[in-house]
Design a protein around this nucleic acid. Sequence first.
DNA 1: ATACAGGTCTTAA
DNA 2: TTAAGACCTGTA
Length: 273
Amino acid sequence: MITIREPYFSIEQICDSGQCFRMEKVEEGVYLIPAQNDCLTVTSNGQETFFHCSSQEYEQKWKHYFDLDTDYKIFAGKIPKEDDYLKKAAVFGSGIRILHQDLWEMIVSFLISQQNNIKRIRKCIRAVCETYGEKKEDAGGHIFYTFPSPEALALASEEELRALNLGYRSKYLVKTAKSVAEGQISLDAIRKMDYPHAREELLKLHGVGEKVADCICLFALHHLEAFPVDTHIRQVLERQYPQGFPFESFHGFEGVIQQYIFYYDLFQGQKPV
DNA sequence: ATACAGGTCTTAA
DNA sequence: TTAAGACCTGTA
């Protein structure tokens, strides 16, 4: 087991930040993270975070997965002193990290996320994994399901997916899975592209628009300059920044700021600061 | 009960 | 090029 003390890391905030729909809180301070072809248990007592894995696994994959090589203090420090709203948002969500998640999983997850609420997004993704993924058991005996491959999902029919209550997104998913499985779109190629090119390529997928493409760029490709604008962000920008949002202050890490705003807008008032 | 959720596509001016 | 309308379903 690995213990870290890092003020700019909160597994609870990451779980609630809405970037990883499969991460699950099983009880107070206990989280399950199905990722990296495994399922990690992370616990926290508020001060320290415990990764239930070997030091080798931590160094080789989880450290990077949780972006623990990056100094988030620098990001928060670049918020203009006079911007009270952003300063509060950054303190409120200071434990958030932008994870390094799987590209295909993010494509499907944010395809499903559109015009949908987070609770139901989780439910839909769980159903997809349990139906088309592989059942596995982690070191602690927890059963979990892997995220199904493009090939596995390309075999699904629109009717089957509608039976999982994906609604009109079913058609998007079938077409997108086929275009990846058949090689019209190359995930490996997208991984090597910079932000503008990756975004452009992702927009070719049926059901992927600008907002979803930006979420994929941010949460899978770690293009921190991606700034997804959804209904929450749009409303905050209109309300708090009627003269325009100062993007120029956040060159290269716009996406981190976006997460602070999104999380603050979602939970302010519902959680103790 | 009913508006809306981490939007996108289609169609029509 | 822009703007309405349609679209599944379950949460709040």
